[in-house]
Amino acid sequence: MREVTKTFVLTRFDPDQDEAPRTQEYKVPVREDWKVLDAINFIKDEIDPSVSHRWSCRMAVCGSCGMMVNGEPKLTCKTALSDYGDRVEIEPLANFPIVRDLVVELEGFMDKFKSVKPWIVRAKQKAAEEGTYRQSTEELSAFKQFSMCINCMLCYSACPVVANEPEFIGPAAIALGHRYNMDSRDEGASERNQRFREEGTVFSCSYANECSEVCPKDVDPAAAVNQAKFNAVIDWAKGLVMPKGGS
């Protein structure tokens, strides 16, 4: 298999040593079928073991390996190096505080995520012995694509509103909240719609559509956010007509 040498420019940052992030260059002999992650792992294994990065499954399903590659958020295990020229810049995900090298702070997302109550909310859950709920394929298709989110956070890196408004709930968290709102087994839409109207509101979304452009799993969070806007308004209107206990 053919090998070419490419130059990789990695962001480096050790809070104990560096005032601010800096870059470091590495020359790597890359095979033609490599993904970006293969090159980063080569750097770590053979050239500079002090590079810190997150990865695990290498099959685009665990969501660990999101990074900026030449200025665009990518899953590095899925991104072919053959799409790039001789110089590849790899930075940590945009819009996130940087912990170390290519590793970003994820707790901000975990806070936003938990705030939308991403679980089935029901007044009374069936007992296991009573069997499963019936759900038609149509009902499943109402929310199925939104459940495909792997929490890779590329959408947060792409969103201009996330970059400017720290309170904004953000694409993935809204998509997952909306996923539960649309699940026929859930009864918590009212609570989530209220959350969607509160601080960090879904209405901060200004239709950039960048989240859906970068999503590696075709979740289409932009669709979820805009559907959520519609539903949040309907829910508010219902609340005026039927205060408390409605829906």
Partner: peptide, 22 residues
């Protein structure tokens, strides 16, 4: 069967038959 039923209650999007069963 009980454990998978609980998972379904917790929201797992199982593929369905025509009649809505898993």
């Amino acid at each position: 069967p009980k454990e998978l039923t609980l998972l379904e209650h917790w929201g797992l999007p199982f593929s369905r038959n025509e009649d809505g069963t898993v």
